[in-house]
Computed example of a mutant assay.
Amino acid sequence: MFKGSIVALITPMDDKGNICKKSLKKLIQYHIKNKTNAIVSVGTTGESATLNKNEHTNVIMNTLEFADEKIPIIAGTGSNATAESIILTKKLEKSGISGCLNVTPYYNRPTQQGLYLHFKAISESTYLPQILYNVPNRTGCDLLPQTIAQLSKLKNIIGLKDASGDLSRVSMIKQLVKNDFLLISGDDATALDFIQLGGIGVISVTANIAAEYMYKMCKLALQGDFTNARKINSRLNILHHLLFQETNPIPIKWAAKYIGLIEYNSLRLPMTTLLQENKKILKKAIQSILL
């Protein structure tokens, strides 16, 4: 369940900024139909930073309900407060989620010792599988390979989502951890190279609108057919970049609305809608690649 194309699912909202269950259900059905391997619910792309605690839990529970056990659900349970992450994780223990994605504590800028103790405390509080999530350009801290190696020894820390974009780290980390420790890309633009270096898949933003392509690309890559995987990736490459021309999830929510996967292109402040000039560029790319 923790390999291949895993979508970092957007959280659809209505025109008043409330969670749109109708669009959420449609999105999940789309991913089941197109064989996405798993869903991350309420991660960075799911706008965890602007959902309150009840909404956060409710979106995960709605995602589980709509998935109906047809696709594994990984819950975003990270926080910059260790105690808060533990509370959310324990709250979801009997929910049916397959595991948790735990981002490094943002804004606090903890030391490596602080990062180790943070994830250790969460790990010791639960039996749920834990995936570490390193995204330095958004959190202000960087989980280093040596700290990852330490954490990999804890019983239920099973892998890492690495969104650093630094491919040199893949081999470095692989040398420091056991063979069954999962390395998952968190950067669509470098995901194929990440897999070729020993990763087992990608937690993808692009998969929100190109689920079938991302599934096929990852499947081929994991089978060792990098020639055909690269053909698909070359087709998607402009999308990988355009979906980050403004802060994620601004472009991907506009794109999902444009192709009819969600009803409204709604975000909560301080996130704002895609600039008009960027809409034109992304629209052109979507028309040539997906429509």
Rank of each mutant, 00 (worst) to 15 (best):
V202F: 03
K174N: 11
V205M: 03
I184E: 01
G199H: 07
F194H: 02
G199C: 08
T190A: 04
G199L: 07
D180E: 15
G198Q: 11
T190S: 11
I209C: 09
L176D: 03
F194A: 00
I195L: 13
T190Y: 02
S204G: 07
A189G: 12
S185R: 00
K178Y: 08
A207V: 07
A207R: 09
D187L: 01
V177N: 09
A189N: 12
L192Y: 06
D180T: 13
I209K: 05
G186P: 00
L192V: 08
F181E: 05
K174W: 05
V177E: 07
A189K: 13
I184W: 04
Q196E: 14
N179E: 15
L183Q: 12
K178T: 14
F194D: 00
N208C: 09
G201H: 08
V177W: 06
D187A: 08
S204L: 06
Q175E: 15
V202M: 00
I200H: 12
V202I: 13
L197S: 04
G199M: 08
L197R: 11
A189W: 03
S185F: 01
Q175A: 15
D180R: 09
I203P: 00
L183M: 12
D187E: 15
I209F: 09
I184M: 10
D188A: 05
V177K: 06
L176Y: 03
D187H: 09
T206M: 03
G186C: 02
K174L: 09
I184T: 01
L182W: 04
L182G: 04
F194R: 01
V205R: 01
N208V: 07
I195Q: 06
Q196A: 14
G199R: 08
N208G: 06
D180V: 07
I200L: 14
G198P: 10
D193R: 10
L197N: 09
F194T: 01
T190E: 02
N179R: 10
V202H: 04
T190I: 11
L197V: 02
L192P: 05
K178W: 03
N208D: 11
I195W: 04
G186S: 01
G198L: 11
A189I: 12
I200C: 15
G186K: 01
G201R: 08
A191G: 08
L197M: 10
I195E: 03
A191D: 02
A189P: 03
L197F: 07
L182I: 12
N179T: 13
T206I: 05
S204A: 07
S185C: 02
I200R: 13
D187Q: 08
L182T: 03
D180C: 10
T206H: 02
V177S: 08
G198N: 12
L192Q: 07
T190G: 03
A189F: 11
D188I: 08
V202N: 15
S185E: 00
L176N: 04
L192E: 07
I209L: 10
T206V: 14
S185G: 01
A189R: 11
L183C: 12
N208K: 06
V202L: 06
V177M: 07
T190V: 13
I184N: 01
L183A: 10
F181Y: 13
G186H: 00
I200K: 15
